[in-house]
Simulated scan of single mutants.
Amino acid sequence: MLSREELIRYNRQIILPNFGVEGQEKLKAASVLVIGAGGLGIPNLSYLAAAGVGRIGLVEFDEISLTNLQRQTIYTTSQTGESKGMSAIASIKELNPNVKTQLYETQIDASNALDIIKDYDVVVDGSDNLPTRYLVNDACVLLGKPLIYAAIFRYEGQISVFNAKRKDGSRGPNYRDLFPTPPPPEMVPSCNEGGVFGALAGIIGAIQANEVIKLLAGLGELLDGRLLLFDSQSFTTRFLNIKSNKNNPVSGEHPIITSLIDYEVFCGLNEVKKDVNDITVHELHQMVESGKVPFILDVREDYEYAISNLNGLNIPLSKLENEVGQLSQNETVIIHCKSGQRSQKALQILKNKGFSKLKNLKGGILAWQKEIDQSMEIY
């Protein structure tokens, strides 16, 4: 039953055709788990709480940074360094005290995903990395939970509803029907490296919340079996149809994934053998401390270098092909970027140009900040 306060609060929603008190009561009785309180998670949390979803869970372990504020609009400058999860939950409670909340201030992985997800009706994927996307997808399939998926990069976004229960009792396609296997890690730049248009996060996140509310209230036609592609520069949309694959390893006719696996290894981010071209930040630090200062090539953008650097030569990856003349093939070149993805591409470019004495700084300057110099500012 809805209280008098709730009838007033949700009045503009209740008077909608095909929604009514019944639809509002469905939302109040429902539970939604949001993975991440970042660019996608924030609009989801805000609109789902405002709409009156009865219980909202949040998985988030990160802290608020200055670079978040361009698109994560519930945080403020004064909150930098504080817990994202705690701040987001406080914001939900301030917006709508009727909503019950649960914060999981931990990284979701194969050891805890099933326990976290099992108590929720719907899962919203607001993550920004491939291992988490495959992990959450597989957990939802194994548990029979619908998954509202989205991803954003630069000016483009995509959304779909995975593993939706249909009228005949079957389940719709899931993430592995769209992307059976992950691409090589070096082919997947993150938003940290490629950038993201701030307003795009709000648009795509709001569409995700729209699909959640439709699903819970039994409204309209879901993005089940369809992938919505949105380009914010041209303001164009298109749809791709997704079909279930009988060879899907988690939901096909003969599934081979019946429990969660190591998704870092699956996505090629945690190889068992160390790459022969890798050098760790501790190895580099030892070289510097011993006076054997190596030649360091920083392939980040100019503005990133200006904020903080390791005193290397700065040639952005986009300019490297035309500026290899600044490098010598006779000395070892240690290449780094922010996290290690652009530097891998740079290493391959230089190999193709005949360079053989090359090392990639594993984990990039982020690893240097975490393990060597915590005072370094990186954005």
Rank of each mutant, 00 (worst) to 15 (best):
I89M: 01
A90K: 11
S91L: 01
E94F: 08
L95Q: 12
N96S: 12
P97M: 06
P97T: 10
N98I: 14
K100C: 13
T101W: 10
Q102I: 15
T106Y: 02
T106P: 01
I108Q: 10
D109N: 15
A110V: 13
I117S: 08
I117L: 07
K118C: 12
D119N: 14
Y120L: 03
Y120A: 08
D121T: 11
D121Q: 11
V122L: 05
V123N: 02
D125Q: 04
G126C: 05
N129T: 00
T132S: 07
T132R: 01
R133F: 05
R133N: 01
Y134L: 02
Y134P: 05
L135P: 01
L135S: 01
D138G: 13
C140P: 07
C140L: 05
L143P: 13
I148W: 08
I148M: 13
I148V: 15
A150N: 05
I152Y: 06
F153E: 12
F153W: 10
E156L: 09
G157Q: 11
G157I: 14
I159M: 14
S160D: 03
S160Q: 11
V161Q: 00
N163T: 08
R166V: 05
R166L: 12
K167G: 02
G169W: 06
S170F: 01
R171H: 10
G172M: 06
P173N: 05
N174F: 10
N174Y: 05
Y175P: 03
R176E: 01
D177N: 05
